[in-house]
Amino acid sequence: MDIQELHSALESLPYILGGLPATLGLILGALAVGFVLGVPLAVGRVYGGRTTRTLVKLYVWLFRGVPILVQMYLFYFGILAWLSSLPGLSFLHLDSAFLAAILVLGLTSAAYQCQIFKGAIASLPSGQLKAALALGMSPTTAIWRIILPQALRLAIPAWSNEYSILLKDSALAFVIGVMEIMSRTRAVASATHQPLPLSLVAGIIFFALTWIGLKAMRVVEDRVRIKGYTQQGSI
């Protein structure tokens, strides 16, 4: 790798960084989908009846057992393509790779987030729920107002890990054509025949994003900390 190569790699940096909104969009979208699904899944897993618990387990088993890559192919080239071929659904055109990627990453993340929140809920003393019920709260109110506020705080360290997992998984969205950082890097690398500097550039960008994300999570953790509350730091 000589100066020339490095120079041209740096010249393509703005183009590669143009993929940043897509990468961040994938991560935040998937985190949100995973959270919105993961919390009720965890509540169902802990407090649900037998049927609910079995269904949640089935969901977790499915989405933790199939690689992201295979899911991307299945959802995008398989299911989505088939859906958009149906009359009236052609608006689900193959352009929707970005949304398909968010869905795949989010559904999988929901399975992992479910496990995280389940662990956090289970680590609370059972007396918390009892005390809330003893005051006359409904089970739903007790879970919303007493259990989840504590469990979600406890889950933050494990949950912040989910960010860095999604950051890395988001790099797989290039296989269905989402123009995020990885796919822009590949495009430049194959056009210029310089995979060495470009793969280093991509590595550095992702590494920086991991680092920034973890710092941000730590700030959040400090913000929502309950005074004097030093229960087990991780789950």
């Binding site: 007396g127 504590q150 309950i226």
Partner: peptide, 24 residues
């Protein structure tokens, strides 16, 4: 009756051995 149970519990105060204050 959930309604009945909740109003009953509301009117019966309970003190636990390990306090069970809401930690958050």
């Amino acid at each position: 009756s959930k309604q009945n149970l909740r109003s009953f519990r509301r009117q019966v105060g309970m003190i636990f051995q390990d306090f069970n204050l809401f930690e958050h």
